[in-house]
Computed example of a mutant assay.
Amino acid sequence: MRVLVAGGSGVLGRRMVPLLVERGHQVTATATSAAKLDLLERLGAEGVVMDGLEPASVGDAVAASRPDVIVHQMTAISVAHAGKADMKHMDRWFAGTNRLRTEGTDHLLAAAEAHGVPHFVAQSYGAWNGIREGGRVKTEQDPVDPMTGTAAEPGMAAIRHVEDAVLKAGGAVLRYGWFYGPGTMDDLVEPIRKRQFPVVGGGGGYCSWIHLDDAASATVLAVEHKARGVFAIVDDEPAPAAEWLPYLAECAGAKRPMRVPAWLARPLAGDVAVLMMTEGRGFSNARAKKELGWELRYPSWREGFKAELS
């Protein structure tokens, strides 16, 4: 198929584009600057500069590539775009990404309709943000939590926009877990090595993880199966912070994380970090494995963390 990967130069796009090419697809991948075009061409794609917030730019990219499917992977959370990770001020940290998940999604869907693109696959997020009621592990039938009154509220609203718009258009929404793998590990383990990432309260909040290579393989399958609906793209072992965080520290050769009470963490790290660590809900991957025939290289973060940090 002809595949347009919007946001192909990101950490997931860099793992996905070569896999699509290897499986015989003709790939056009977008970047926000001409400086990244050489990278995309080395990965086997035709590189195109596109501004996801400009309808004309999006329309031109879709018209030129004539895709059979558009894969929406546009975000703006890299240090270059958004600065250092900042969960306390997540509304500011994710401001660019939220626009790409609202305005950018609408521009891509409008271009898809205008040019007769029959299929659409979009990135969503499902790591610790399942609805905070009932059990600790959610399915695709469960909504993401609105995080009302926190700095994550605009981001959760943007995720709901992606999901509602893409499902209305008959496409597939992939709720990826917390990414780890090439290009992500330094940002993940640096605060742990500095003992700036403690276990909050009892650490009972659940999180689902996914290695970038497994996220890429699931996305390719969603493309090839012309999947429709919501799929949780996470590993087999959603787990509480009290388990994964000390293990990640051990794999990174760091000291065991400190424990701090929620009342102390809240003014330092913000409400979102406290909610994640104490009340988070992970997700089940049963649907993706059954309907896409997806097999994970790293079924558990235990294997994946160790492999990445050995």
Rank of each mutant, 00 (worst) to 15 (best):
M1H: 03
G10I: 05
L12D: 03
L12W: 01
P18W: 09
L19I: 13
L20T: 05
V21T: 12
E22N: 08
Q26P: 00
T28W: 15
L37E: 02
D38L: 12
D38A: 15
V49Y: 10
A56H: 12
S57P: 15
V58S: 01
V62G: 14
A80Q: 14
H81V: 03
K84W: 08
M90W: 03
D91F: 03
G96D: 06
D106H: 09
F120W: 11
F120D: 00
N129D: 15
E140R: 14
T148W: 01
A152G: 04
E153H: 11
I159G: 00
I159N: 04
L174G: 06
L174I: 04
F179Q: 08
Y180V: 03
G181T: 06
G181C: 08
P182Q: 07
L188P: 01
L188I: 11
I192V: 14
K194Y: 02
R195S: 11
F197Y: 11
V200Q: 04
G203N: 09
I210T: 03
D213G: 10
E224P: 08
A227H: 08
V230T: 14
V230L: 15
V234D: 13
D235K: 04
P238S: 13
A242Q: 03
A242P: 00
Y247M: 00
P257Y: 06
L264K: 12
L268V: 15
A269E: 09
A273I: 11
V274Q: 00
T278S: 10
R281C: 14
F283C: 13
A288Q: 04
L292H: 04
R297I: 01
K306D: 10
K306G: 05
S310A: 15
